[in-house]
Design a protein around this nucleic acid. Structure first.
Lengths: 350, 350
DNA sequence: AATAGAATTGTTCCCGGGAACGGTTTGTTA
DNA sequence: TAACAAACCGTTCCCGGGAACAATTCTATT
């Protein structure tokens, strides 16, 4: 296509009869360049269609204006989170690299992170959920060695790391208070895998809310799922098999709630009359469940945006960037979406 | 941390008492290096912890071993597709950049693609669905100008572009044949937005299958949705309001099928006895719909993998890479997942 | 022992930009 | 009018690697 490959800074300089440094100054907008020189150079740039090479810049600045999100190879990460992070990064002049990890043991993590430093990645968004031993590597000296800002998503806070998470305790409490305010007293809980930090937080909120309301939270009212709809079916079946006579279930995510609904229908239970069901996440589908699901909304897109914005601040700080009176970043908040799967206790004998 | 920033090729060369070119040869594995020299250099590399700089390589090779996926800023793209593409890219030694586009008009597309050439991106995965005027830019000379291999996902085939898609005609026919084989004769269709190529393909398959079976496909049996669950609710309501007396619905995706089920329940229809419902996609949730949804499975992950693999072949070819007797890539195939939302026509008068 | 030829290893230059620093102008102050 | 500071522009060198080409071995023949 193009006659002789790519147009370089020097080509522009030659065509404009100035030194390449002057062209560089015009391009980067640094230092002073006489107005007429500027315009002339700009014109030549436009005429030649010159575009600066990002990799050359990366080479001499030691920074790439690129971030990496690291997620599990298989897993539940929502597209919205990726989209939010990507959009925010782009808006702030960064690109986003997508990395997946099959098995997050310390060795693989080390390989991955070293690879990222090879590419002069400026920062990392760690989107692998805090569960099992997936965060063990934090205790190694890896973080210090790679010397790149990392922001952890939905990870238990600990010293020395930056996390960006929803306050699940708060969100789950919202769900519980809703059920309690409807007059429900015997509230069961279908949790995510207890190896997950977020699942444990929600369980904790379930216990706390019941306790604060002077209600019981017996272990038999708790069933553990694995976030999938079928696990929700199973968990609901377990609860019912215990013949506990509960009048509400707080389910730790909408997907499992879907399964719980199916089991309830199959057992002839009426939702919400016999059992009120509340979910968590507010996925797109939940509005059309049968019946439409009451749930707590978590804006995943916003989560991604906030994480990216936070990371970029850290990156900028690291490169001595201006501490430009950064306005505080917004917090992530939940909201209750009341639909038909919850309702007040019907008058007894109904 | 590190005493004096990063260790370079020359540092290794100095420490090993060889020229940097020798070190380079060892690192890249190119040409012949005497065995003992190799081992010595390798040892020094390990001792110093040397790691080649990706950006320096990009600079001198003019290729970055990085691909970009371009998707819509908001949209329906599934995580699995991204994961599949990312995983496959990594397996073949490439990285994947995630780009989103808010409004895919020709100008934005041009900006985006030029930005990608600035970074020496090797290839592009175009994951913006073929709908409305989003593909108009292909007709400009942009593709030729940027001179980067592009693979289009789920886009209508046309001269001069490479596409990787499921054969929706085939998949939809699978659904239709299933319904017909169950004795269903009056089959309605809830389509995606007709501006979408994939939606039109499925409509076409609906018509063709009915025609081949000697059945009618009147326009009144067609309702258009927008892929969302609520649009499925509305579309089902429209169909029912026409009092058409259909005995099955083929819904163009599982999400809308969920909505269709909800409307059916609300109107007192029994699924599958009164109306059989079949979906498309086989999302994780559909196994726990009420009732569990019969559907046609599309493996999105595999779609991402195949797209990435295809793109990488084109990239390799473009860089004069070995035409290494490339084994043919697998095709994308659908499969029918029979569940409870479809069943044979019950004996009349049931 | 001389010499072609293969196997190794070294030198130079370039990839595309930009920081550091040096040299001119031009205008201002004493 | 000399002295001096801005404002503007140019030269040199470095970022980290690798291709092209040159130079030096070593080996096998005649």
């Amino acid at each position: 296509m193009s006659p002789t490959s790519r147009i370089r800074l020097v080509d522009v300089a030659a065509a404009a009869n100035v030194s390449k440094q002057t062209v560089s100054r015009v391009v980067t907008g640094s230092a002073d360049v006489a107005e007429h020189t500027r315009e002339h150079v700009l014109a030549v740039i436009a005429r030649l269609g010159y575009r600066p090479s990002a990799s050359a810049r990366t080479l001499c600045h030691g920074r790439s204006y690129t971030l990496a999100v690291v997620g599990l190879d298989f897993g539940f990460l929502s597209t919205e989170l990726y989209q939010g992070a990507a959009q925010q990064a782009q808006a702030l002049g960064y690109s986003l690299l997508l990395k997946t990890l099959a098995k997050p043991d310390t060795t693989s993590v080390e390989q991955l992170l070293l690879g990222l430093t090879d590419m002069h990645i400026d920062g990392v968004l760690w989107a692998i959920p805090d569960a099992y031993d997936r965060c063990d590597w934090i205790n190694s000296n890896l973080l210090a060695r790679i010397n790149i800002p990392v922001v952890f998503l939905s990870t238990a806070p600990r010293a020395g790391i930056v996390t960006v998470s929803f306050d699940n305790l708060d969100g789950a409490r919202l769900a519980m208070q809703h059920l309690i305010s409807l007059g429900r007293r015997r509230i069961a809980h279908i949790s995510g895998p207890l190896a997950w930090w977020v699942a444990r937080e929600r369980v904790r909120a379930w216990r706390l809310a019941l306790q604060e309301a002077g209600l019981e939270a017996p272990e038999s009212y708790l069933a553990e799922g694995d976030w999938t709809p079928v696990s929700g079916e199973r968990a609901m079946a377990q609860l019912l098999d215990r013949s506990l006579d509960f009048d509400a279930v707080f389910v730790s995510n909408d997907r499992m709630a879907l399964g719980a609904l199916l089991t309830a229908h199959r057992r002839g239970l009426r939702i919400p009359q016999d059992v009120a069901v509340i979910g968590f996440d507010n996925i797109l589908e939940s509005a059309s469940f049968y019946p439409p699901l009451t749930t707590v909304s978590q804006n995943k897109r916003q989560h991604g945006e906030l994480a990216a914005a936070t990371l970029i601040r850290n990156v900028a700080a690291r490169f001595g960037g201006a501490a430009n009176a950064s306005s505080p970043l917004p917090a992530l908040t939940h909201s209750l979406i009341a639909r038909e799967s919850t309702a007040p206790i019907p008058p007894s004998g109904a």
